[in-house]
């Protein structure tokens, strides 16, 4: 059982091949938003470097959001196109689930965060190891203070003394989050990237359960409405 996974949710694009033995191939291009130009080439290189062909793939995994709206659609449109043309099932994996999976064994409140701009962070909360990773919140868009407050609630609730944060939201709000969370916060010192391999591992787990998505109705998880819809809801006029 082989998964081709693709991730274009953030400025970094990734492609991975995962099977029952684990990760077979992974490439990351952290070169900013030019995924439309590079993604398919990256997929083609993945096959050429591994001697796999598209026919060998059993399902296509794609990071489904949140993240850059356009980036998510590039990944999703590519996954749908491949899935339909090659007659493969598609499996959408939420970005924050994939990011949390990357550090699933850490015995803490796990909180992957992405820079959502406009002073906010996309984030979700998970109960880390031991035991299987468990998501305890929705996918959210929050200000750093609201995120810290929600984190405290979950830490009390789950009796966890540490919160482990990863993602480019850490890079953007590191000092502010340190001020808010103090010693309870642990996070990588280096910038940390989402990985297509995490999406691939999670998609593989779903595939062996027979849990696939409908290629027609699978859609990005945006978390946020479009700006025009927000303005309309606030009665400001769309334009």
């Amino acid at each position: 059982m082989l998964i081709l996974s693709i991730d274009t949710a953030t400025p970094s694009a990734g492609v991975a091949l995962v099977d029952e033995k684990g990760l077979r191939y992974e490439a990351v291009a952290n070169t900013g938003y030019k995924h439309s130009r590079t993604l398919l080439d990256m997929i083609d290189v993945a096959f050429r470097q591994t001697d796999y062909v598209l026919r060998d793939v059993d399902a296509i995994g794609v990071t489904s959001g949140p993240g850059s709206f356009t980036g998510l659609r590039i990944g999703m449109a590519s996954a749908k196109g491949l899935a339909l043309a090659a007659e493969k099932p598609v499996i959408g994996i939420p970005t924050l689930d994939a990011m949390a999976f990357h550090i699933a064994w850490v015995p803490a409140l796990i909180c992957p965060i992405l820079n959502a701009r406009k002073g906010e962070i996309y984030g979700a909360f998970y109960q880390g190891g031991p035991g299987p990773l468990k998501r305890v919140s929705d996918y959210l868009a929050l200000s750093p203070p609201a995120l810290a407050e929600t984190a405290r609630t979950y830490m009390d609730q789950l009796d966890l003394g540490t919160i482990s944060l990863v993602g480019d939201g850490v890079d953007e709000y590191r000092s502010q989050l340190h001020d808010l969370l103090g010693g309870a916060m642990v996070c990588p010192e280096e910038p940390w990237l989402p990985r297509a391999s995490s999406t691939g591992h999670l998609a593989f787990r779903r595939l062996i359960q027979g849990d696939i998505d409908d290629v027609f109705s699978l859609n990005p998880i945006y978390v946020r409405q479009s700006e025009a819809e927000n303005r309309l809801a606030k009665g400001k006029g769309a334009r």
Partner: peptide
């Protein structure tokens, strides 16, 4: 641009898959 990218990304993958 965002609208074009949906069609372009889908078409590229579809052609590649076929």
């Amino acid at each position: 641009i965002g609208a074009l990218l949906v069609g372009v990304s889908f078409a590229k993958a579809y052609a590649y898959g076929l």
